Amino acid sequence: MTPDEIFESYIKPYSQGCCMHYSILQPEMQYFQHEYGLISYIKKYGCYFVLADPIFKYSEKEFRVELIKKFLNKYNRVSFVQISKQFAELLNDEFNYYSTQIGNERLINIQKWKISGKRKQVIRTSCNQVAKNEINILESPLENGFDTISSNWLRTRQVKKREIKFLIRTHPYFEIDTRTFCAYDSDGNLMAYIIFDPIFENGRCVGYVPDISRSSAKFKQGIFYAIMVEAIKKFKNEGFEYLNLGLSPLILNSNSKSFESEKLRSIFKIIRKYGAKMYNYNGINYTKSRFIDESAKEKEGVTNPVYFCHKSPLPLFKITAVFKASNVI
C-alpha cells in the first residue's frame, strides 16, 4: 500500500490518539495488513521491530489479540518500540512480553494551557526576545527553504552529520495535513521552523505533535519555545484538544511496573548517564518539561510512559539494533 492509502484507510479512521502513527509512513516501513487492523514494522539485522501501537479496527480485546497472534505466527524475533502502557500490558498479559519503559510523552491540554508560572519563565524570555528582535512567527505552509537551516542545525548536535530516523521521522517524505510554523528575522530571512504532524482520534484530527524542529544558532534564547507558543495559540483558537510533545527518551519513572525488566532499566539508566555524546537526553527532557507544571492546581497536561516490549529480560542485541536502525550509532 502507498503512504496515501495507509493514511486514508487506517490512520485517519482508526488511529486512537497515537502521536506515532504519522511516523509509520516512513519509506523503510513495511506493513502487515489484516481484517482486524494494521501493524507497521521494519526488519533490521534479522529482527522485526514494530513501531508504535498497531492500528486496530475494533476495540474489542479478542480482535486485538487475534491481530497480534497472526503477526507473531508469521514473524519471529519481534520487538515493539514506542508503544503505550495499555498495549504494553496487553503484550505482557497475552504473550508474556516484558514491557520496559523507554521514556515518556507529555500532552499539553491546549484549551487550559497558559504561559504564566515559574516553570515557564524560560518560555516567556524567549517570547520577549523574539519581540525585541522583531522576529516574525507565521504559519507558512508553502515554505520550503529548510535545507540550510537544517544542515547548520545538525552541525551543532553532539552527533554531527547524522540525523535520527525511525524513532523520529525525517523530512520530507509525506506532508499531507501537517502544519508548518516559521520564524523570520526583520529582513525576512528564515531562522527556524517546526513541522507539526496531525494526531487523529475517532476519525478526526484532535491535535498535533511537533515532529520536526530546526533553528539557527544565532538566536540564543530558544526560539523553539516562541514558535511553540504561537502554534498553541492558533491551535487553541481552532478548537483542538491537545499537543503531544513527543518522546523524552530514557526519562524513566521512579517506580517500575511488575512487567518491566529491571536489568534493562539499569542499562537504560547507564546509557542516559554516559550517552550524552550520542543524544542530548537531559536537554530534550528539560525543554519539554517547561511546558507543563504537573504540580499546578489546574492541570494543563499529563505525562504518560512509553515502552519497549521484548521477549528476553536483557535484549542487548535488539537494543543495539534499534539504535543502529535509528542512526544513533
Rank of each mutant, 00 (worst) to 15 (best):
P3N: 12
S9Y: 04
I11E: 05
M20I: 09
Y22G: 08
Q26D: 13
E28I: 08
M29Q: 15
Q33T: 15
Y36K: 14
K43L: 07
Y45Q: 14
G46T: 12
V50A: 05
R64T: 10
E66A: 15
K74Q: 15
E94G: 06
Y97W: 06
T100D: 00
Q101K: 09
I102F: 02
Q111C: 06
K114E: 00
K120C: 03
K120H: 02
I123P: 02
I123C: 06
I123V: 13
S126Y: 03
C127D: 02
E139P: 03
E139M: 12
P141V: 05
F146M: 12
R155M: 15
T156Y: 04
T156K: 09
T156Q: 13
F166H: 04
L167P: 04
L167F: 04
I168E: 10
R169W: 01
R169N: 11
H171F: 15
T180Q: 09
C182A: 15
Y184T: 05
G188K: 00
F196W: 05
D197N: 09
E201C: 12
S215N: 08
K218D: 13
K218T: 14
Q221D: 13
G222H: 02
Y225I: 05
M228Y: 07
E230N: 14
N237M: 13
E238Q: 15
E241K: 13
L243C: 10
L247T: 01
N255K: 15
S256H: 09
K257T: 11
K257I: 09
E260R: 07
S266D: 13
K273Y: 12
I284Y: 06
S289Y: 02
R290C: 12
F291C: 04
S295R: 04
A296T: 05
G301V: 01
L314S: 09
L314A: 14
L314K: 06
L316H: 04
L316S: 12
A325L: 02
